[in-house]
């Protein structure tokens, strides 16, 4: 069973993604900010992150960078899911090592499909 960590500071968005992913049979962890996310990554070693960018204290880019520059965690897949839609943000996300960059608001079906795709 693949483990997915969802990181977002909006409880409603967390709730909706959690529902979708549970239904697909993934084991879910939840973090409300970047700091919490890094703690959980260290402890639980999830297989993938669904990661927001705009968060207090530690932002999504920093979380991504931490994971991808750390040998033990570099294999973890990262999907940015964010309302930041500028081309420069997408470039920045991908160059930080993200595997996918999805924009909010998202289509639930597409999200589910992309997450599945990433493990194949």
């Amino acid at each position: 069973m693949k483990k997915i960590l969802i990181v977002d500071d909006e409880p409603n968005i967390l709730l909706s993604i959690e529902f979708l992913m549970k239904k697909e049979g993934y084991r879910i962890f939840i973090a409300r900010n970047g700091k919490e996310a890094i703690d959980i990554v260290k402890k639980e070693m999830p297989d993938a992150l669904i990661l927001d960018i705009m968060m207090p204290e530690v932002d999504g880019f920093e979380v991504c960078e931490f994971i991808k520059t750390n040998e033990e965690t570099a294999h973890i897949k990262i999907i940015f899911l964010t309302a930041k839609a500028k081309e420069s943000d997408i470039q920045k996300g991908l160059s930080a090592g993200a595997d996918l960059y999805l924009k909010k608001p998202f289509s639930t079906k597409e999200l589910v499909k992309k997450v599945k795709g990433i493990f194949n």
């Binding site: 409603n12 909706s16 309302a83 079906k109």
Partner: peptide
């Protein structure tokens, strides 16, 4: 626009969930 996308994201996600399930 960023601020507005946040509620819309939730609305859309939950509407789709309710619609599909």
């Amino acid at each position: 626009t960023h601020e507005m996308r946040t509620p819309i994201t939730s609305i859309r996600a939950f509407s789709e969930i309710l619609h599909d399930n």
